[in-house]
Design a protein around this nucleic acid. Sequence first.
RNA 1: CGGGGAGUGGCGCAGUCUGGUAGCGCACCCGGCUGGGGGCCGGGCGGUCGCAGGUUCAAAUCCUGUCUCCCCGACCA
Length: 428
Amino acid sequence: MPRLSEYLLPTEKQPPADAEALSHKLMVRAGLIRQLGAGMWTWLPAGWRVHQRVVAIIREEMDAIGAQEMLMPVLQPAEPWRKTGRIDIEELFKLNDRKGSELVLAMTHEEAVTTHVAQIVRSYRDLPLILYHFQVKERDEPRPRAGVLRTREFVMKDAYSFDRDPAAMEQSYELHVGAYDRMMARTGLRFYRVQGDVGMMGGVGAHEYMAPCAAGEDQIVLGAGYAANAEVALDDPQVEHVNGEYARGGERLSVEPAIEIANIFKLGTRYSDALGARFLDDAGAEQPVWMACYGIGPARIVAAAVEQFADEHGISWPRALAPFAVHLVALGKPGTPERDAADALYATLGEGGVEVLYDDRDLGPGEKFADAELLGCPLRLTVGRRSLESGEIEVQLRRGRVQAPGLPLAGEPEQLLAAVDELWQSLP
RNA sequence: CGGGGAGUGGCGCAGUCUGGUAGCGCACCCGGCUGGGGGCCGGGCGGUCGCAGGUUCAAAUCCUGUCUCCCCGACCA
């Protein structure tokens, strides 16, 4: 586990001059991300840890419903995109290689996965099938914005289900609704699952997962037992819409801005028809494969978490996403007894499997505390001269900046680790 | 694509109107002090002022072109 004196965490006192969105400002200030160009972002080590936390949650829930992870290329031949008609989408990056062959940079992977399934799947015995990968998506966005919220390149987990008929597709879809509900809950975010637009994917039904926050680009309409994308609510005959106000069955609905963090679609046979994905059913008749697709953007989940839980001092991660569980602050110069005590605690935590970031830099307490609160790890432990006097490690809970009872400095490692774990389990 | 704004050291800015050879805060390096909320003193390093061309004795500053970035809108799996 890293020592801050050796770790690349470039924190800034001031946000970038051109940043507007809270998550944009804080993620740059906290040293999580850096910009390379419009809509092009680098994840620095601490930021990437958060990103990979989200990835791990998604992977576990996908694997739990029997989905199989794989990897498909971003650089693709144009031909399948011509067959599905998506070659004309303006957001699609198109290029030629040195021989003049037409290529695209994939914005999603329906064309690729369906091409493979068309070749591989021959029989109803090969179905159902759920395939997924985490892969970069490329989109020539007209206007990238708000840091990592809307970029031209981003990692998406996209999954595709392949079934023998509409009823089986519905089953796969429901399986994903369950998995998505669970992964969203595990991130610790506030979220809603709403009826979605079908959009450029084409298809027969969709849901979106929306995380309410100020920087959101979408509007969601909410009431008791009702949640919908504002665009969809307009088409709902049960919803009245007057002067920007929404009502349903006499109940006034609230409207909140939100980020779309995931998106699932019933595709039907649109792609399998275009790319020839067919199989023989148990009666020997040729049938099209029924498809659905399931996308989720880890970067947006990270940004949404920043937006939802930040305060005036910085980020406050839900524990499921925090880059480190513990931010250990050592006060006092190297060679002092208090520093020795901090070093010992760092070793104990590390050996106990606690994910700890150790601030061993030669800086004043103010800067260390400020950086810790900016980065937002759920637990901050401080060891300084006072700890030696009181015999206690100082504990601050990042959420709410609450001072918790101190932990014994000289106790048995097992007891200390158990106490830290108990604290950890109690956090949001 | 329409509208608005901005490019000056790693970050945030002043200087541009009125041309005279680049400055401030932070950060960074060296030395010292300090050591529980971004502390202090002293000494330093670092910038072809986005790029190209033009005007001029002289251009960060004026002119022309161009690139890039941000915000609002349109768009958005």
